[in-house]
Simulated assay, not measured.
Amino acid sequence: MNNHSFKYDYLIVGSGLFGAVFAHEANLRGFKCLVIDKRNHLGGNVHCKSVEGINVHSYGAHIFHTNDKEIWQYVNQFASFNNYINSPVANYNGELYNLPFNMNTFYELWKVRTPKEAQEIIRQQTENLNIDEPANLEEQAIKLVGTDIYEKLIKGYTEKQWGRPCKELPAFIIKRLPVRFTFDNNYFNDTFQGIPIGGYNKIIDGLLKDIECKTDINFFDDRAYWEQQANKIVFTGKIDEFFDYKFGELEYRSLRFEEATLNTSNYQGVAVMNYTDAITPFTRIIEHKHFEFGQQDKTVISREYPASWHKKAEPYYPVNNEKNDSLYKQYKELANQTPQVIFGGRLAEYRYYDMHQVIASALTKVKKEFQND
């Protein structure tokens, strides 16, 4: 293969965080990149749009949090972050509880005032259940927080989210559930947390500055043409689609957002409210202005409805059960035998990544790709 026959060094398919970081780093090293995206905007799922002067997170809440100082410094090159702390509230049939589970939650539930009292109630609720090795999400959750919290604040929400009973979900999904015996409503334990002032588009625009980008372009509509454009491809879409579903389809969960602009300055008093009962069809309501402490006269909310996934739907969450993980391994082996393509991001790596993890993955692949430069 002669490099001179290609117009670009890298074709980057997808302009989310992985694609944008890779393109930025390649461009810094003097390589010519083209970024294409099938949506009508750049930025993938971190894309924001302005409505009534409010930065609306188009694809659900994105809260940046990390313990990795290097990743934090990396994103701060492109935007300043505010000091937003995620403190969601759970709404169970109109009863409100603080998240993550902490002394405020336990007081509201049981009127206990000390950590010892709260721990004793959880112990009483779990001691006769003999759950040593939790076999599924239900057992794992009850072992961690007892039956009351499981029934009110976990079961309905989780079953809506995944579209299947908690007994059929793997225990690991909830292993990192924050449970605190302090009066602390900060959802994340990470040192660094915030929202970019001016929205995530500032970061994407900074990463893709001076790089040629085309939107409304689906790589698969004219795959042969796009494969002729660059020496190498960075692919951030679905890995099974790239290999034409050779071993079968990987499964995902999808989401649907219902957005409304309301003629009030403050709808729910918090950015994220989870609806944990089984009856309410949506899992949460996001009130976007609270991410940036907005003082606008109006407000914008998004209701988030989990949805089953099909090929025309947007894939949001990989379903990392044994069946899918072993299927992904087969695709990963194919990817390893395709050296002219770099696979990265949530869909290409079939992993539920947070934003800082996507950036870390991109920078790792960059290091590997350019180690001799």
Score class of each variant (00 low, 15 high):
Ile142Thr: 06
Phe172Pro: 07
Asp148Phe: 14
Lys143Asn: 07
Phe101Met: 03
Val112Glu: 05
Tyr187Pro: 05
Asn98Val: 12
Asn128Val: 08
Val179Leu: 05
Thr114Ser: 10
Pro178Val: 08
Tyr97Gly: 01
Lys116Thr: 11
Glu133Thr: 15
Leu153Ala: 04
Pro134Glu: 08
Leu169Asp: 00
Leu96Thr: 14
Leu137Ala: 08
Val179Ser: 03
Gln125Pro: 07
Cys166Phe: 04
Lys175Asn: 13
Gln124Gly: 11
Phe172Cys: 09
Gln124Tyr: 15
Lys160Glu: 05
Ile173Trp: 09
Gly94Asp: 08
Tyr157Asn: 02
Glu127Lys: 12
Arg113Gln: 14
Lys155Gly: 01
Phe183Trp: 14
Gly146Arg: 00
Ala141Gly: 04
Lys116Trp: 04
Glu139Thr: 06
Leu99Gln: 01
Ala135Lys: 15
Trp110His: 09
Thr126Phe: 07
Glu95Thr: 14
Leu99Ile: 05
Met103Arg: 03
Pro115Cys: 11
Ile121Val: 08
Glu139Pro: 04
Glu127Tyr: 10
Asn98Thr: 14
Ala118Arg: 02
Lys167Asn: 07
Phe172Glu: 11
Phe101Ile: 04
Arg164Pro: 02
Asn104Leu: 09
Gln140Ile: 08
Asn104Met: 11
Lys152Trp: 15
Trp162Cys: 02
Ile131His: 06
Arg176Ala: 07
Lys116Leu: 03
Leu99Thr: 00
Asn185Arg: 14
Ile174Gln: 01
Glu151Met: 13
Ile131Lys: 05
Trp162Pro: 00
Leu96Arg: 14
Gly156Trp: 03
Ile154Asp: 00
Phe106Met: 02
Gln161Trp: 07
Trp162Lys: 04
Met103Thr: 06
Leu177Met: 10
Asn130Asp: 12
Arg123Ile: 12
Leu137Thr: 09
Gly163Gln: 09
Asn102Lys: 01
Gln125Glu: 15
Gly94Cys: 06
Lys160Phe: 09
Lys143Thr: 08
Thr105Ser: 04
Met103Lys: 03
Asn128His: 12
Ile149Ser: 04
Asn130Gly: 10
Glu159Thr: 10
Pro178Asn: 12
Val112Ser: 07
Asn186Glu: 12
Pro134Phe: 11
Lys175Trp: 12
Tyr187Val: 08
Asp184Tyr: 03
Pro178Asp: 13
Glu120Tyr: 10
Pro100Val: 02
Gly146Tyr: 00
Arg123Asp: 15
Val112Trp: 04
Tyr187Glu: 07
Leu96Lys: 14
Lys160Ala: 05
Asn130Lys: 15
Asp184Glu: 08
Leu169Trp: 01
Leu109Tyr: 05
Asn186Asp: 13
Leu137Asn: 05
Ala118Pro: 02
Gln124Pro: 06
Asp132Trp: 15
Pro165Ser: 10
Phe172Lys: 13
Thr182Lys: 12
